[in-house]
Design a protein around this nucleic acid. Sequence first.
DNA 1: CCAAAAGTGTTGTTGATACACCCATGT
DNA 2: ACATGGGTGTATCAACAACACTTTTGG
Lengths: 241, 241
Amino acid sequence: MTFPSSQHTPQSDHKITTPGIDGITIDCVIFGFNKASLEVLLVQHAEGESIGKWGLLGGYMKREESADDAAHRIVYELTSLDNIYLEQLKAFTNPDRVPERRVVTIGYYTLVNREDYNIKASLSVIEAKWYKINTIPDLIFDHNEILKFSLMQLRNRVRQAPIGFNLLPEKFTLLQLMHLYEEILGIELDKSNFRRKILHMKLLIALDEKQQDVSHRAAKLYKFDAETYKKLTEKGLNFEF
Amino acid sequence: MTFPSSQHTPQSDHKITTPGIDGITIDCVIFGFNKASLEVLLVQHAEGESIGKWGLLGGYMKREESADDAAHRIVYELTSLDNIYLEQLKAFTNPDRVPERRVVTIGYYTLVNREDYNIKASLSVIEAKWYKINTIPDLIFDHNEILKFSLMQLRNRVRQAPIGFNLLPEKFTLLQLMHLYEEILGIELDKSNFRRKILHMKLLIALDEKQQDVSHRAAKLYKFDAETYKKLTEKGLNFEF
DNA sequence: CCAAAAGTGTTGTTGATACACCCATGT
DNA sequence: ACATGGGTGTATCAACAACACTTTTGG
């Protein structure tokens, strides 16, 4: 937008029509997939007024970084995960979302492969723990709302683009992938129809490997084909199940 | 998120790790539909450093209002439009999106019926003008980017929910609706197939009225059926064309 | 041999697509 | 009469759902 004349900028005058904001934070919903459950990484904070309470991983956005950069940094500081799938949800701006102060938060969600992940001791975090998404406790501030929104967003996005792969190890079986979709979308899928549909998309590369140490017929392993995805992504892609 | 210990809050210390932000603004992409064209309302600002330049309608978010409230207020102040369809896009946070100051903006888009609309003289706006979306000039700051993002979002949302109706008068013909979709999505549709599909959805109420003063066979008028939409919306709805 | 999951095949139904055609009305 | 858009009907094809079936492997 355009700024009012200079004597009304937030810098020169904090008290008039635009008293400004006390701060902008980033809060990040970290999704993981374990066995057959969609889970979220929550943290218990070590300092501040919300000490001991569970909440999303968050932090301040610095003046010289974008929100995307801030989100990547904050996730990296805790998990050492790099190059992860990360997407902005929206800004949460309810004036009383945080008591006392006027703090706007920009919500993010990320999809991580739990095998890669490795919690670091962090200055501001006592503990971090994965929660199944149907057993989420009461969280600080509006974090339950942010989480709910992120789930909606995840369910929508997962139907339109193959982002679900980010939750799986590099090599996976078709049924693992199917269970992932079933869990995220909360529906049941037909094995046969799922195979046909997903293989038709040409998004998977069949590997010359099979599962090891399973007490039943070993399934073929596949990996996601990022190349052909790029080609397909331009003309749209239907992921409905 | 959780705050660091009190001596590090943005209030008590502006210079440490979280120097904060100079302000949060709202910028709003106002879409309208005229004849067969999708258009956007742009404004020319009367004051500030960007005087005379075209940009999106924007303004500051006040301390005591949410971003949604601010967006509604800002649109109302210019157009007197109330109860309009309005949706947040995302926060735009590039550190140098605005020179000199660190200003984050929360983008919105709205769909308005151009028949209802009535520009008001506004303190901060010299002029407002509708631009066809393929003839958008260079805008201030990152407003071209915001506009581009809003178009993407509009194209996605319009396939999933019947929000397009907000761009039309209350009573409309099937071909008007079809042209709207053609224009937004940039595709050609088959008249016959479109009719079948849209009427099958039961989202339209056929009125006992016809077009007036047209130099060809008058078309039946329809209106959007908000009731059955609510019922359908819970179990999802496919708007693909 | 049995349990458990992997993987294949078949069939009916639905819905999208492409087109051809007739209808009403103002000039 | 003809141009313009309104409106109907139909044949073809691809996608999907439902479900029955066979295969492999460990215990």
